[in-house]
Deep mutational scan, measured.
Amino acid sequence: GSPLAQQIKNIHSFIHQAKAAGRMDEVRTLQENLHQLMHEYFQQ
C-alpha cells in the first residue's frame, strides 16, 4: 500500500497501545494525527 496507508495503520496501533496504557492525552494527540492523515489520504 501507499506510505500514507501504512502510516494510518501504524497510528491505529499506537492509539490501541496508548489506550491500553491509559495515556488518554496521547490518545487524543494520535487521533488528531489520524484525522489529518485520513484527510490527506482521501485528497489523493
Rank of each mutant, 00 (worst) to 15 (best):
F14T: 05
Q7P: 01
F42K: 08
A5W: 15
K19Y: 13
H16F: 11
A18F: 04
H39N: 09
F42Y: 11
Y41Q: 03
H16K: 15
T29G: 05
A18T: 01
L30D: 00
G22C: 07
M38F: 07
L37I: 05
Q43V: 08
I15W: 02
M38T: 03
E26M: 10
G22R: 04
M24C: 13
L30W: 08
Q43M: 11
L30V: 01
T29S: 10
A18G: 01
Q44C: 15
F14Y: 11
H12D: 02
R28V: 07
M38A: 03
I8K: 00
A20C: 14
S2H: 10
H16R: 15
Q7C: 08
I11G: 00
L4P: 02
D25S: 06
L4Q: 02
I8M: 04
E40N: 06
M24P: 04
T29I: 13
I11E: 00
Y41K: 03
Y41V: 04
V27Q: 01
K9Q: 08
T29F: 09
L4C: 07
E40Y: 10
S13V: 12
M24I: 08
M24T: 06
G1L: 13
L4E: 02
A20D: 05
Q43C: 15
V27I: 05
M24G: 04
K9L: 09
G22K: 04
Q31E: 10
E26A: 05
S2Y: 09
K19L: 15
A21N: 06
E32I: 12
K9A: 11
H35T: 09
A18Y: 04
S13W: 14
H35R: 15
Q31S: 08
Q43P: 05
S2M: 11
K19F: 13
A21Y: 03
Q7K: 10
H39Y: 11
G1R: 10
T29E: 10
L34E: 00
Q31F: 12
Q31A: 07
P3R: 13
A21C: 09
D25T: 05
H35A: 13
K9W: 09
H12V: 15
E26V: 11
E26W: 12
I15F: 02
Q43F: 08
K9S: 06
Q31G: 04
K19C: 13
A20S: 07
L4W: 06
I11H: 02
N10L: 15
R28T: 05
A18R: 02
E26Q: 08
A21H: 05
F42V: 06
A5C: 10
A20V: 09
Q36D: 06
R28C: 10
H16A: 14
Q31M: 14
L30P: 00
G1C: 10
Q43T: 09
Q43E: 08
A5T: 08
R23D: 06
R28H: 06
D25V: 04
L4K: 02
L30M: 04
Q6M: 09
F14E: 10
Q36C: 07
F14V: 05
K9F: 08
I8E: 00
K9Y: 08
K9V: 05
L37V: 03
V27R: 01
S13I: 14
H35I: 12
L30G: 02
Q6E: 11
I8D: 00
G22Y: 03
K9M: 10
N33S: 13
H16V: 12
N10M: 15
P3Y: 14
Q17Y: 07
K19T: 07
H35E: 09
I8Y: 02
V27L: 06
P3E: 13
L34A: 01
Y41A: 04
L30H: 03
G22I: 02
R23N: 09
N33E: 15
Q7I: 10
L4M: 05
G1V: 12
A18N: 02
A5P: 05
Y41M: 06
N10K: 14
I8G: 00
S13C: 15
N10A: 14
A18L: 08
N10R: 14
K9D: 04
A20Q: 10
Q36T: 09
E40F: 09
N10E: 13
R23P: 01
L30N: 01
A21G: 04
A21S: 05
S13K: 14
Q43G: 11
E40M: 13
H39F: 10
F14R: 15
P3F: 14
G22W: 06
Q17M: 11
Q36A: 11
Q7A: 11
E26G: 01
H12F: 15
H39Q: 12
Q43I: 09
I11A: 03
L30Y: 04
Q44H: 10
L4T: 03
E40S: 07
H39W: 12
I11K: 01
Q7R: 11
M24H: 09
F14H: 08
Q17S: 08
Q17C: 14
N33L: 15
N10Q: 14
Q43H: 10
Q17W: 10
R23A: 05
A21W: 07
R23C: 08
N10H: 07
G1W: 04
L34R: 01
E26K: 06
T29V: 12
M38Y: 12
Q31V: 11
N10V: 11
Q6W: 07
Q6G: 04
D25N: 07
R28K: 10
M38W: 10
F42I: 08
L30C: 05
E32Y: 12
N33H: 15
G1S: 12
S2F: 11
H39L: 14
A20L: 12
S13G: 09
Q31H: 08
A18E: 02
L4I: 09
N10I: 14
V27F: 04
Q17R: 12
M38N: 01
A20H: 05
Q6N: 06
Q43L: 12
T29Y: 08
Q31P: 01
A5E: 11
L37Q: 01
I11V: 07
A20I: 11
I15S: 00
Q36V: 09
H35P: 00
A5D: 06
L34C: 06
H12G: 03
R23K: 09
S2A: 10
Y41H: 04
I11T: 03
L37R: 02
N33I: 15
A5S: 09
F42R: 10
M38G: 01
L37K: 03
K19N: 04
Q31I: 14
S2V: 13
F14L: 15
K9R: 10
K19D: 02
Q7M: 12
H16D: 08
M24N: 05
D25I: 04
L34M: 04
A20K: 11
N33M: 15
Q44T: 11
A20G: 03
Q17G: 03
P3G: 12
L37D: 00
Y41L: 09
K9P: 00
N10W: 14
A5M: 13
T29D: 06
I15H: 00
Q43R: 13
H16T: 11
K19E: 08
D25E: 10
F42A: 09
Q7G: 02
Q36S: 08
Q6A: 07
A18H: 02
Y41I: 05
E32G: 06
P3I: 12
Q44K: 11
A21P: 01
D25C: 15
M24D: 06
Q36K: 13
N33K: 15
V27P: 00
G22S: 03
F42H: 08
Q17I: 12
A5F: 13
Y41E: 02
H39C: 14
H35D: 08
T29M: 13
D25R: 06
L34T: 00
F42D: 05
E26N: 03
N10D: 12
L30F: 04
P3Q: 13
L34V: 02
L30T: 00
Q43N: 10
I11Y: 05
G1E: 11
F14C: 05
V27S: 01
Q44S: 10
S13M: 14
E40H: 07
Q6H: 05
H39S: 08
K19G: 02
N33W: 15
F14G: 05
D25P: 02
D25W: 09
I8L: 05
L34D: 00
F42Q: 07
H16Q: 14
E40R: 12
G22N: 06
A20T: 07
Q31W: 13
D25H: 07
Q44L: 12
I11S: 01
A18I: 03
L30Q: 02
A21I: 04
I8C: 06
K19I: 13
Q17L: 10
E40A: 11
H39P: 01
F42M: 11
L37Y: 02
A5N: 05
Y41D: 01
R28N: 04
F14A: 15
Q7H: 05
Q7E: 07
I11M: 10
M38L: 13
S13R: 15
L37G: 00
A20E: 09
A21D: 07
L34S: 00
M24S: 05
Y41W: 13
H35N: 09
I15C: 08
S2G: 10
M38E: 03
E40T: 08
G22H: 04
A20N: 06
A20M: 12
H12Y: 15
V27A: 05
M38S: 02
A21V: 04
M38D: 00
G22T: 02
T29P: 02
A5R: 10
L30R: 01
L4G: 02
N10T: 11
L37N: 00
I15V: 02
A18M: 07
G22A: 03
K19P: 00
S2N: 11
A18C: 11
H12M: 15
G1D: 12
Q43Y: 07
I15K: 01
Q36N: 08
A5V: 12
F14I: 06
F42G: 05
R23M: 07
R23T: 02
G22M: 04
H35C: 09
G1A: 11
